[in-house]
Design a protein around this nucleic acid. Structure first.
Lengths: 402, 402
DNA sequence: ACTAATTTGTAAATCGGCATGACGAAATAG
DNA sequence: CTATTTCGTCATGCCGATTTACAAATTAGT
């Protein structure tokens, strides 16, 4: 569990782990569990026909999963079909729980999700974290985590892992925050500051948001670009159902796409980066507003009231986003672009100019742009579900932990 | 073999093929073959220790590969080490051959590569193909293919597949050219116009170039961006040792990255696309030269002679490339950027300004930029090797074809 | 109602594939 | 010349999925 969850791709045939029968068993356990979770209550025979194994083989696999507490038998189905009714199986509601946590600029949040995907417990605490050092913030977060874990344990769950979403760049070790400008954190190993008894994974808020979109969004494809924003503009690239992380884990930095190469200087050293046109600070300035804690809320409120200055600022930001996204879309050819995170609240005023710009610069049909249904809670849900996903991907590794 | 070679990623655990013992055997055959090919002559024991199987298991796998004609026994090694010497194994020099073919703007080329990776036969024909219709061009190409195949068969090889590189966009069915502006082809299924007795794969020239770089380049990482150019500017994205293709197979279109969003109108509908600053035509115009057949050669020649106009034009193109690449590098976080294809000949004059621009716009260490050792023959080699790669990845599928 | 047909789940036998352990073969070290 | 080391192979065993058979539970048909 120290390795990052959900690699973009398993290693090639030359370097893979030895392909032995235990590995086969483990993969088949995963396939059974995955299909039962994905396709609702299912009989052993139904699972067998879906994954291509025989009923006998599935029987033994199911037995093992039931013994591990990952599957539950609901009893005989009552269908109108001919033949003996099957015995319905579901993923357990009392097995492992994924603990998701989030450090936002102005809040902390924790939740526990069970194998079925339902949130069983949650805790939120408002309060500005900008400029506070990691230790007190994570101490506070640890309180919330204990709270949520206690509640989950009361319902018969046990924490299988803790996934933390932060608004910043995270190293590939999945524990060290390299740079989180809006918190003021840099090069900090978070693991020592969090509960040591639960396996930890730290990742970028945008990445978790994208995974939530992938797993929870309705009709979201396996190849898309997920754009979110907290001050900087973070994006996440999903390729064939997996996250593209990059060599250092920094993939998805949309904020410093050159939009006007001769524009004003940016902190990154370049000129005319997207962030200077569509970043929160820039939009606030363009709208003639003062910096505030809840910038997105303020912008959305004013825009909804019909404030022309704010609307114009958002239109311009949408155009800039459109330019940057044109480049990204040309390079990646995704099936769609999803606006998520805090950005989704501003979508009504960003979207028209964004889509215009994208369409204008694209030969042929433009890449469709949609708004996340999950909105700001995407990252937290994605984090919790990433833990659940790890269990589903290798149930054997989590077997005896109840 | 009708499915595209080298998907970016196998399907998730829920949808994968049933994981049965035959599958395990197939994968282990592949692993044995891969290691022998990659690490030179090797004894059974050496292979076993490398891939983590026992000597006994490897013995049976090797037997099967020898019977299939994919491996050869060289006889006992003569080492200075204690103990019975092993019997060296090599991949066969008389097994399957990968037939690579290329339709360029001003040439046709075909080659045959054996399992060892050595080119065993080749044929090239110069002649402008711009504006010619697919049928006569591919008829001519078919002649060359027959020639090369005959020669290869004379040496005991048999064609395991034909891979064709074209300078244009290819659909994900790996047979249909969607758009090849410099040939004037569009929406053409090439399969009926090529030998029907060899399994066919068609792909973008830039993609094959990138694969060649991945497989044949020295020290090339598993995550990089490969930039080539023929008129348009094509790039290919390699993520964790696999090609990123995109939903429609169009990933890697660098040519229409917005470089100066208010710049002149481009054929794609946008403004100030990279192609207008670093495309061949644009550079020729900026250098004050007339259109010509061998544009790259002309530019390189003049630049080498010290022509200041040409050099300035190339410097500016490098700067524009740098701007576009900044965006791509930020988005993908690759380990390096490789200049390949025709572009590699112009590298000496493009590189300085390109690297300057990239470094200026990057916070922290800039992404290293290198020049392909393979140069213009990358695509052809990549095509041939992609066939060989398919054999290595699943030897069982090619077993009885000798 | 009673039988036939159909489907489910499991048990027993079988097969395929790798691991284990032992052995002869072929080299080096002393 | 013997002891040691390593290689390749064989016999055996284990593990996991398949095959085959069968009892159980339901619907369809008379």
């Amino acid at each position: 569990m120290t390795a990052p969850l959900h690699e973009a791709r398993p290693a090639g045939p030359g370097r893979a782990l030895p392909d032995t029968q235990q590995g086969m068993r483990r993969r088949n356990l995963a396939r059974v569990l995955h299909t039962v979770r994905a396709e609702g209550p299912l009989s052993r025979a139904a699972v067998a026909s879906r994954i291509g194994l025989t009923r006998a083989a599935v029987s033994t696999l199911v037995d093992e999963l039931i013994r591990s507490g990952l599957l539950e038998e609901l009893g005989p189905e009552r269908p109108g079909r001919v033949g003996r009714p099957g015995s319905a199986l579901t993923v357990s509601g009392r097995g492992p729980a994924g603990i998701g946590a989030e450090v936002g600029v102005d809040h902390l949040a924790v939740c526990a999700v069970d194998l079925r995907g339902t949130t069983r417990s949650r805790a939120i605490r408002q309060g500005a974290n900008r400029g506070r050092s990691p230790r007190p913030v994570l101490a506070e977060l640890t309180d919330l985590i204990r709270q949520v874990v206690d509640e989950a344990e009361g319902e018969g769950l046990y924490p299988a892992g803790l996934a933390l979403a932060v608004p910043g760049l995270v190293a590939r070790d999945a524990r060290t925050v390299v740079r989180a400008p809006n918190l003021g954190w840099h090069d900090t190993d978070l693991a020592p500051l969090l509960p040591a008894d639960i396996p930890l994974t730290v990742d970028n808020e945008a990445n978790f948001g994208a995974l939530a979109e992938l797993w929870l969004g309705d009709g979201t494809p396996r190849d898309f670009l997920h754009v979110s924003a907290e001050i900087g503009i973070g994006a996440a690239v999903v390729v064939d159902g997996g996250l593209l992380r990059g060599t250092r884990g920094f993939a998805g930095e949309l904020g410093h796409m050159p939009v006007r190469p001769d524009g004003p200087e940016c902190a990154c050293g370049g000129r005319g980066c997207l962030e200077q046109y569509a970043g929160e600070e820039a939009v606030m300035r363009a709208a003639g507003l003062e910096p505030d804690e809840d910038r997105v809320g303020l912008l959305a409120g004013r825009a909804a009231q019909g404030d022309e200055d704010v609307r114009r600022a958002l239109r311009d930001a949408g155009t800039a986003l459109g330019v940057a996204l044109t480049g990204a879309v040309n390079l990646l050819d995704p099936e769609s672009v999803v606006l998520g995170g805090e950005l989704s609240g501003l979508a009504p005023w960003l979207l028209p100019s964004l889509q215009d710009e994208l369409a204008r610069r694209t030969a042929g049909p433009a890449c469709p742009v949609s708004v996340s249904r999950l909105g700001p809670q995407g990252p937290l849900l994605g984090a919790a579900h990433s833990v659940i996903r790890a269990v589903l991907d290798d149930p054997a590794a989590f077997a005896g932990q109840a």
